[in-house]
Simulated assay, not measured.
Amino acid sequence: MVIGATGQIGRPAVAALARDGWQVTAASQSGGRAEEWPGEVRAVRLDRADGAALAEVVGEGCDVLVDIVAYDASHARQLTSLADRIGSAVVVSSVSVYEDARGCGFDTQDRPDGFPVYPVPLPETQRTVAPGERTYSTRKAALERELLAAGERLPATLLRAGAVHGPHSRVPRELYFVKRNLDRRGRRVLAYGGASRFHPASAHNLAELIRLAAARPGSRVLNACDAEAPTVAGIGAAIDAVMGAENETVLVDGPPPAPGVGDSPWAVPHSVVADMTAAERELGYRPVVGYAESLPETVAGIERRLAGRDWRAAYPKVAQAYGDLFDYAAEDAWPGA
């Protein structure tokens, strides 16, 4: 059973599990189907917040429950309450649960010098934020804590995903470069020398990790990212290659030089690069797609969604998360441009 089946991770996960021979129940709020699923996949409607509805869909039981949208301790308790009907679980978490030696994490990044300084690469043994209900990071930490405490009663693989990307993303970071190319800007500014790295995680690679974990039950946490962590300048160049665009890139040392200038969704002062050796060792994980190789379908999806629409209407969650990524007036007024 896959919860969150019609989202950007759920779509390829259901397809990968079905190809592997599983009988898959695909549960989502809409109850819809994806075109890439085989006909034998059973699609059902499910309100993830409704514990009784979840128990009804699980029914007499399932060998593996994949939860892509689990968010906090209450969701974990829903799963553990059904432990006698679930063989094992695979649950998507986030690298945002990590904190550095100073106690800094993603929740402190807006403070002066508050962005975390993680080891590179970042192992699963790195300490995590205290569990709680206050933020996305603390809720994911609480989710993990509850599920790991269940131990053998409900073996759960927790996948700490990086910057998820794919053709069905509602928050595609690649929009930053795609829209500029469509608008024929010709020049862009990148803070931190364009060297920022925030480890991406393809939806297809996450689906592969889910497929492998389903076949190898265990109580564990694993980083879940692509093989490579390209720089933001490298990402821009790769998107240019897909779109046949030529641009001048202005690199700025240090943080964004002015509001609305150089602050891309990948602009971080310190690299966030996950160590993937545990997933390779425990699951035999090998990425099924590289970042540059995955871009054509991602770019095509963004272009289709933008066609004839304001970018804020096409991607409201991007505007909510990052503000105005396309303040061209500010860019043109900046003296360094």
Rank of each mutant, 00 (worst) to 15 (best):
E146I: 10
K317Y: 14
P131L: 12
I9W: 02
I239M: 06
Q109G: 02
Q78A: 13
R304N: 13
V14N: 10
A337M: 12
V318E: 02
T249E: 10
D63Q: 11
E246H: 11
G193N: 05
S88Q: 04
P116I: 02
P335H: 11
T6K: 03
Q78C: 10
R309V: 06
Q23H: 09
A313S: 13
A5L: 03
R127W: 04
Y322M: 02
A238S: 14
L79Y: 07
G336Q: 13
R216I: 10
F177A: 06
L159N: 02
R281L: 07
G51I: 07
E99H: 07
W334K: 03
S96R: 04
V97E: 01
R33T: 14
A13I: 02
R185Y: 15
G234K: 03
L148W: 01
G234V: 09
R197T: 10
A319I: 10
A329I: 03
D84S: 15
L209C: 12
L222S: 10
V272W: 00
S96I: 00
G10D: 01
A245D: 10
R185G: 15
R188H: 07
A314P: 06
W311S: 07
V69M: 04
P131H: 06
A314V: 05
D100W: 15
A241N: 12
G290V: 10
P287S: 07
G151F: 05
A83C: 12
I302P: 02
A34W: 00
K179V: 01
T138M: 00
A43C: 15
G193I: 04
